[in-house]
């Protein structure tokens, strides 16, 4: 084991829905380590348990068994209050359906995690603006979600996930609801984040999306059946090499 703990360290994770004969085993002992700076794509057909895994990694759901260490902290023993702090500071979550809060401007949406984290309003504003600039939405800050296109909404969501500078960025099929151009936009942003050394775990069932990650994990029936490295952890994501993004 390296002296620096892995960002993500999952051991023999299981998740069972229901009980007895009707029980569904969504995860059957998943073990996974993700080092700092890695860009991991988790692939699998629907029902393979990848969303369940993602929800557990995002501390939105609790596993039925196994251990989960995030940045060296055992999540299983944390109480409700500490879990919310963990979600706030360490994890940035990007949803397939964007999940922006309606009737709140893009800027307010991005500020929200900082507000819950207790950051002062002026500082909050500054950081939220910076995050929105980073995703190329400097001119859309005051628009409400329903005035933005899907791609723009997802970029706001990415900014919201980024703004707290979390140790781990989780993306649950971030391009699943987007057209080709918006997909390229969002993936471009993720590539840049990967290049700048952020730890990203994303779920997808599209090969093109997975091809951009440094490491691809394939999940079938709640078990990892393939773990393929496409690029070194401390190197650039493969796409940036091919396309030469900055």
């Amino acid at each position: 084991m390296t002296p620096e703990p892995a960002v993500l360290d999952v051991r023999a994770l299981t998740k069972v829905y229901g009980q007895g004969g009707t029980a569904v085993h969504a995860l059957r002992g998943v073990s996974l380590r993700v080092e700092r700076g890695d860009y991991v794509a988790i692939m699998g057909a629907s029902g393979s348990g990848k969303s369940t895994l993602m929800n557990i990694l995002g501390c939105l759901d609790v596993p039925s068994g196994g251990r989960y260490l995030l940045d060296g902290t055992d999540v299983g023993v944390l109480d409700e209050r500490r879990l919310s702090i963990l979600r706030n500071r360490r994890i940035g979550f990007i949803f397939q359906s964007f999940n922006l809060i309606p009737r709140m401007s893009a800027l307010a949406n991005v500020e929200l995690p900082l507000a819950y984290g207790g950051v002062k309003p002026a500082e909050r504003r500054r950081r939220a603006r910076a995050a929105l600039r980073q995703v190329g939405l400097a001119d859309r800050m005051d628009h409400e979600p329903n005035e933005l296109s899907g791609g723009q909404q997802q970029r706001v969501a990415v900014a919201r996930a980024l703004v707290t500078a979390p140790a781990l960025l989780l993306a649950d099929e971030p391009t699943g609801n987007l057209d080709t151009r918006s997909t390229a936009d969002v993936l471009g942003i993720l590539d840049r984040l990967g290049l700048s050394g952020r730890t990203i775990v994303l779920i997808t069932h599209e090969d093109e999306v997975a091809a951009r990650a440094k490491r691809v994990i394939r999940l079938v029936d709640g078990e990892i059946i393939e773990d393929r490295r496409q690029a070194p952890v401390d190197g650039p994501p493969p796409a940036t090499v091919v396309e030469g993004v900055r």
């Binding site: 702090i85 949803f95 922006l100 819950y116």
Partner: peptide
């Protein structure tokens, strides 16, 4: 409810 879920997912404490 969904909005509450979003708020919780981005780290809103119970008290908030």
């Amino acid at each position: 409810t969904r909005e509450i879920g979003i708020r919780k997912a981005i780290g809103a404490p119970k008290g908030a």
